[in-house]
Design a protein around this nucleic acid. Structure first.
Length: 268
DNA sequence: TCTGACCTGCGA
DNA sequence: TCGCAGGTCAGA
């Protein structure tokens, strides 16, 4: 579910609403998502700490709570929800944060594919490639990355060890925006195409963040509202609809077992 | 490079 | 009832 733009929106909203607040209580339900700590221990260690930092890298988010660093991956259906006083307790809440000013923040993950860690220092992201919103994602760096592996360009864009943050929706949208076929070999992308792709990555991700993310199904902002970027998707999940540029019906194919949407006329 | 596993819910 | 869904990982 949440790709870079959705996680960015969630991180910004958590920062805005909770930064500086202190935890009164944390409740962690026993689910498989905890990778390096037991849920009850996670809750015990974070209780009474104060939220000092909220950061995102790729599809990952981490907080600083005093000297501890909880790290979250939202999987396919993970979201953070601001609890409203009078609202019913939603289903599939695995983690509850109660702050000392009375505000509450819940982690909900219907499919339980999310991952949670607790560290004593900020995560270093050794396993992750460059985050395309950070300054070190330069055009030259991107051109280098294209030659790293002999795979199709869509697979490369989605490879978290190469570029961290692009998932299945935005990979299709970026390739459409750049006019490049998802089946092309990454190594055979020439300089002019690389430039188009580089700009498409920035534009597509930036616009998605500005629109509070893409709500295809489960994703909600921390306020519980949907994003609006789904209204602006050009190809994702639009199989059979006319291409917004040339009118040719959008096609669907499988790449790495993931649905891939493209215009065979505009994307070469 | 592909398949299945991990989960639950939705829509055809 | 079946296929599919924004992700990742292990194993063949």
């Amino acid at each position: 579910m949440p790709e870079l733009p959705e996680v960015e929106v969630i991180a910004r909203q958590i920062r805005e609403a909770y930064l500086g607040k202190c935890l009164r209580r944390v409740i962690a339900r026993p689910v498989r998502m905890y990778q390096n700590i037991a849920p009850e221990e996670f809750a015990r260690q974070l209780s009474h700490g104060c939220l000092k930092q909220v950061e995102r890298y790729g599809k990952w988010m981490y907080w600083q709570v005093d000297a501890l660093y909880p790290v979250f991956h939202l999987g396919m259906s993970g979201i953070f929800l601001k609890r409203k006083e009078d609202s019913r307790h939603p289903e599939h809440i695995h983690l509850e944060f109660y702050f000392d000013d009375g505000s509450q923040l819940f982690f909900q993950d219907t499919r339980k594919f999310g991952k949670i860690y607790l560290y004593r220092q900020p995560p270093q992201w050794h396993q992750l490639g460059v985050d395309p919103t950070k300054e070190n994602f330069t055009l030259n760096k991107f051109k280098e990355l294209l030659h790293l592996k002999g795979v199709r360009i869509k697979s490369l864009l989605m490879d978290q060890q190469v570029i961290a943050g692009i998932g299945n929706i935005y990979a299709s949208e970026i390739l459409f925006r750049a006019g490049i076929s998802p089946f092309r070999s990454a190594k055979k992308i020439d300089d002019r195409e690389a430039e188009r792709l580089y700009h498409a990555i920035h534009t597509v991700l930036r616009e998605a963040i500005e629109r509070f993310g893409t709500t295809y199904r489960a994703y909600r902002t921390v306020d519980g509202t949907t994003g609006s970027n789904q209204q602006f998707l050009k190809v994702y999940h639009r199989e059979g609809e006319p291409c917004p540029v040339c009118g040719t019906p959008i096609r669907k194919a499988m790449i790495d077992n993931r649905s891939t949407f493209y215009c065979e006329r505009c994307q070469r």
